[in-house]
């Protein structure tokens, strides 16, 4: 009889269900950053042999996938698995998980940024393009609007504009004032 590797080392069994081509043979399931390791089988299963009693953090080391973290508490060979996460309080366990574990990836890792192809909409969404478009429209539309306007209203508007202009010219020139302020008094 082979003796059990260490007391309570039942081995951790697991099955992964998704595109197996992305899980390369060098995928490893590790406890405590590689202290105990299980290599992936072709059917997606793994066993981490010879794990003594204790609390462990289980991670999956693979290039293309992001897997959840699991806290394992092994006591007298009985394994209790709970959800864990980066930065989670170690003392207060998360939701329980069935054992043997079934891990499914959180996401496929997207390493690359998407190159944005030419898009006619993005060209028009450009603020400069919008400004230009607006001014062109105004250039064409304004004279027509003015033509269609009531002559009285037009006159009133012109008057208003003239008033505004006057009031602006009445405002004392700041630069002149500053220059006066800083220039030595005669």
């Amino acid at each position: 009889m082979l003796q059990p590797a260490m007391r309570g080392s039942a081995g951790l069994q697991e099955h992964v269900a998704f595109d197996p081509a992305l899980l390369t043979p060098d995928t490893r399931v590790v406890l405590d950053n590689g202290r105990y390791t299980g290599h992936l089988r072709q059917d997606g299963g793994f066993i981490i042999p010879g794990v003594p009693d204790g609390d462990y953090l289980l991670e999956v080391w693979t290039a293309n996938m992001e897997f959840p973290k699991v806290k394992l508490s092994i006591e007298n060979g009985a394994v209790q698995a709970t959800v864990s996460a980066t930065g989670a309080e170690w003392g207060s366990p998360g939701a329980g998980l069935p054992y043997p574990l079934t891990l499914s990836p959180l996401a496929q890792r997207e390493f690359f940024a998407k190159r944005e192809g030419f898009n006619i909409m993005s060209l028009f969404a450009n603020p400069y393009m919008l400004m230009m478009g607006f001014s062109v429209i105004m250039l064409v539309v304004m004279p027509k609007m003015m033509k269609n306007m009531d002559p009285e209203a037009l006159q009133e508007m012109q008057q208003n504009q003239a008033d505004l202009h006057n009031s602006i010219s009445n405002v004392p020139d700041i630069s002149q004032k500053l220059a006066n302020f800083f220039s030595p008094k005669e």
Partner: peptide, 17 residues
Amino acid sequence: RAWDATSSFLLWERAVT
């Protein structure tokens, strides 16, 4: 550990004291 020579996947692994 036992490995498949072609696919290079693990076949099984054991720990022995």
